[in-house]
Design a protein around this nucleic acid. Structure first.
Lengths: 226, 226
DNA sequence: ACGCGTCTTGACGCGATCTTGACGCCCAGC
DNA sequence: GCTGGGCGTCAAGATCGCGTCAAGACGCGT
C-alpha cells in the first residue's frame, strides 16, 4: 500500500486531495500544520509527501528543511506563490517537484506518480519455494541457506517452474520458453536437465519431492508446504 | 563534468540554454531533432536530457519512449503546450519533470539541479578484501600498505562493481557504463580487463576471491562485508 | 619526432556447459 | 509374459564462453 502524507492548512484542498488519491488506491494521511507533519513523519514514513508552503505555524521551507535532515522521502511542494525565487528555493532545499495552485488534479497525480516511480528502487523479485530461494535479479539460488550453483539453462527452467507456483507447466511450454519454439519436441532435453536439477536440489533425487513429473504432460515445482 | 543534452528545434532557445548552462559549469550538447538526440545517446549518455516535445522529425513523446527503452537518464520535458493531458502523458512515459514555455531560466536550472540530485549515484564505498583496500572516491588502491596503480579504465570498472556492493553487474551494464552504449557487445574487453585487475588485486589470479565471474551474465565484486 | 603508458585487437587453450545417443526401468495394454 | 511408450540415467563428443598472452595502434607529454 502506497502511503501519502498531505500537508495543507486549507481543509477544502485536503479533502479534495484525499478523495482523489484514495480513489486511486493510495492511503492518505492529512495534517493541517507543520508540527503535525513532522510529528507524523516520526511515526510513519510515507512514500511521498505533498507539502503546502503556506502553513499557519512553521514556514513550509522550514518543514522541508527538517524533513531533509533525516529523510530522502520524495516531497512535492504545493504553493500559491508563482515567483521563480520561491520555486528555486524549494527545489534547492530538496523538493522533488513544485506545483503552483490552482493545479489540475490529473497533473498533480501524474507528478506524484513520477516521484514515486523514481524513488522505487525496482526491487529484486525473489521467489521462494519451500526452503529454496531464487533471487532472480541477482541470479542466485540458495537451498536451506546453502548456495546452489545452477547453469544458465538450469536456471531458466527453475525460473519458469517457480513462476507457475506449483501449477503444471507443459513440456512444450518449458521447451519454448527455455530453448525457443523450434525445440518444442525435444522432450529429451527436459529429462536430462530435470535429472540434473534433482541431483542439485532434492534430498533424494530418486524420489523427488519438489520437481514432480506429470507423465506425458509436463513438470511442476512443489514447495514443501503445498 | 556534468553533461547535459539539450534537444530543441528552436535555435534561439538552444543558444540561450547553452549559454546559461555553460556559465554554470555544465558541458552542453545541443541537437535540433529527435534522430540526432537518439543518435547522440548511443554515443554518450548525458547526466540529464532537456527535451522539447515539438520536434520537426519525431514526436517528442516518441523520443522519450525510445530513451526509456534503454536508459534511466533523467529527462526534463520542455513544451509550449499547457494542457494537462500533455503533461500527464509525458510524465507517465517516464519524464522526470515538465516545464512549460516560456519558462524562467532560474526555475529551469533549479529543476535540472533537482533532477541531477535525485539521480546522483550513491557513493561508492571503500571496499576491503583481506589486506586490499580500494578507495574508489579517492582513486587509491593499496595492498598490504603498498600502493597499487590502476589505469583509468580499470578504475571505472572497479567503481561500477563497487557500487553494486556484491550484487551481479551484467556485462552489458559494465560495457555501457565504462565504454558507452555502442560497446554493449564487446565482451572481450571485459575478459582482458578483468584478467588485468585480477593480476593486480588478487593473491592468486587463477582462483579469484573478489572479482567473481558469472559466466554468460557478468561479474561481481565481493568484499569482506558482502 | 620520440618514448611511454594505455587501449584495442587477434589467436589460442581450457574448462564448463550443452547436445546427443545408448540403455534400462516402470507401467499399461495386450 | 511380452511389448511399447515415456521416463531417468549415464557418458562421450561438440560447442561455448572465459582467461591468457602478446602484438600493434593510439594518445599524450616532452
Amino acid at each position: 500500500m502506497t502511503v501519502v502524507l498531505a500537508v495543507d492548512d486549507d481543509a477544502a484542498i485536503l479533502r479534495t486531495l484525499g478523495i482523489a488519491m484514495r480513489a486511486r488506491g493510495y492511503e492518505v494521511e492529512t495534517v493541517a500544520d507543520g508540527r503535525s507533519a513532522l510529528q507524523s513523519l516520526t511515526e510513519r514514513v510515507p512514500d511521498v509527501v505533498l507539502l503546502d508552503l503556506g502553513l499557519p505555524d512553521l514556514d513550509g521551507t522550514q518543514v522541508l528543511r527538517r524533513i531533509r535532515e533525516t529523510s530522502q522521502v520524495p516531497v512535492v511542494v504545493l504553493s500559491a506563490r508563482h515567483e521563480s525565487d520561491d520555486k528555486v528555493e524549494a527545489l534547492d532545499l530538496g523538493a522533488d517537484d513544485y506545483v503552483t495552485k490552482p493545479f489540475g488534479m490529473e497533473e498533480l497525480l501524474a507528478r506524484v506518480r513520477a516521484a514515486l516511480r523514481r524513488a522505487a528502487p525496482s526491487r529484486a523479485p525473489v521467489v521462494t519455494v519451500g526452503d529454496l530461494v531464487l533471487d532472480v535479479e541477482d541470479r542466485r539460488a540458495t537451498r536451506a541457506g546453502e548456495p546452489v550453483h545452477l547453469t544458465p539453462t538450469e536456471w531458466k527452467i527453475v525460473e519458469v517452474l517457480a513462476r507457475a507456483e506449483g501449477r503444471l507447466v507443459r513440456q512444450t511450454t518449458l521447451l519454448t520458453e527455455v530453448w525457443g519454439p523450434t525445440y518444442e519436441r525435444e522432450t529429451h532435453y527436459l529429462r536430462v536437465y530435470l535429472a540434473q536439477l534433482r541431483r542439485k536440489l532434492e534430498d533424494d533425487p530418486a524420489h523427488p519431492r519438489m520437481l514432480i513429473t506429470d507423465p506425458g504432460l509436463g513438470y511442476r515445482l512443489l514447495s514443501d508446504l503445498s
